[in-house]
């Protein structure tokens, strides 16, 4: 039996090698990309994982630290606050952005060709604009003395708010900003998916007497489910990595009101030079995102 297993493995290896030889040109073309992936992604990821069990030394070898970096992560009040803030940020922005992208795409899809092109470009524009510029503009809009938001709420008789300076408003100010920036990628993807939904489904529904809303709920939304799953996963991963807005608009303050995980990792690594601890924080973030993504994927694909 042992001999038979060895023979199967050997045949398999031969098969792989034979396939590689047969398709050598394809492998050759893949080699540069694969090399870049190994050098710039795979090795750093593995190295970060190893580093998370070490105490980083700039000169001289790193020292093994066992699980102490992970213990520090779970005991850290700053990490707990950052995790809570990041979770709130994600829990609010992801559903809102995906739903509004779906609604916007549905409205745009019913327009004429020229109008569709215009709105596609308009809604996609913030995606290509630098988050640095967007954050600077929004910081101005949140300014207490002459910002647009206080000007607008003033019309309704409200007192001006110190949007980014108060613990109870700062995180929400960042969340509102993210909610009001159109989710360009989502809109484009939904529009592309809508084009591929068969017209015959809508025709059949019309014959059955369905109105526009019923058609949207019963046909469009279910048919777009694969896109929705993809967008929810994509934006959840992106939201858990929120950084630029934080460093530019609040620096994580006041207090730790807007501290997020990636901002904390950045500070731990590049301000405190505790790369072992920063690597442990990164690994924890990786597993959080992984678990949430798996749960979301399973929940959303449940009935398929």
């Amino acid at each position: 039996m042992k001999g038979t297993n060895a023979s199967i493995t050997s045949n398999k290896n031969k098969g792989v090698w034979h396939s590689m030889k047969k398709n050598y040109a394809a492998y050759l073309f893949l080699l540069p990309k694969l090399t870049l992936f190994i050098v710039f992604i795979a090795i750093p990821v593995v190295w970060a994982f190893i580093l998370s069990f070490q105490e980083y030394q700039i000169i001289g070898g790193n020292e093994w630290a066992g699980l102490s970096n992970y213990l520090s992560v779970f005991e850290s009040e700053a990490f707990k606050k950052a995790l809570l803030n990041t979770t709130i940020y994600t829990a609010v922005t992801v559903p809102f952005n995906v739903i509004t992208a779906l609604i916007a795409a549905s409205l745009i899809h019913s327009l004429g060709r020229f109008a569709q092109g215009f709105f596609r470009a308009a809604f996609y524009l913030p995606t290509v604009a630098s988050m640095v510029i967007i954050a600077m503009v929004w910081r101005w809009m949140y300014n207490y003395e002459f910002g647009l938001f206080n000007y607008v709420i003033g019309w309704f008789g409200f007192e001006p708010l110190n949007w980014l300076g108060q613990s109870n408003t700062a995180l929400w100010a960042i969340i509102i900003m993210q909610m009001l920036i159109p989710f360009g990628v989502g809109i484009i993807l939904y529009l592309a998916s809508m084009s591929s939904i068969s017209e015959s489904l809508y025709e059949a529904a019309t014959i059955d007497g369905a109105n526009a809303l019923q058609k949207w709920v019963k046909i469009t939304v279910p048919m777009l489910k694969p896109s929705t799953v993809y967008l929810v996963l994509l934006s959840t991963i992106g939201s858990f990595q929120v950084f630029t807005q934080i460093i530019l608009m609040t620096g994580g303050g006041p207090g730790y009101a807007t501290e997020t995980i990636v901002h904390l990792i950045y500070k731990t690594g590049f301000r405190d030079f505790e790369f072992g601890l920063a690597a442990a924080q990164s690994v924890v973030l990786f597993f959080i995102i992984l678990v949430i993504s798996i749960l979301q994927y399973r929940a959303l694909r449940h009935d398929e």
Partner: peptide, 24 residues
């Protein structure tokens, strides 16, 4: 002092003192 005192906006604070259009 304005409500923005004690915030983290370095540039905005300086502009409020130095910028000819503000000087608040």
């Amino acid at each position: 002092a304005p409500v923005s005192m004690g915030g983290a906006d370095v540039g905005g604070t300086f502009q409020a003192w130095a910028d000819e259009e503000q000087r608040t």
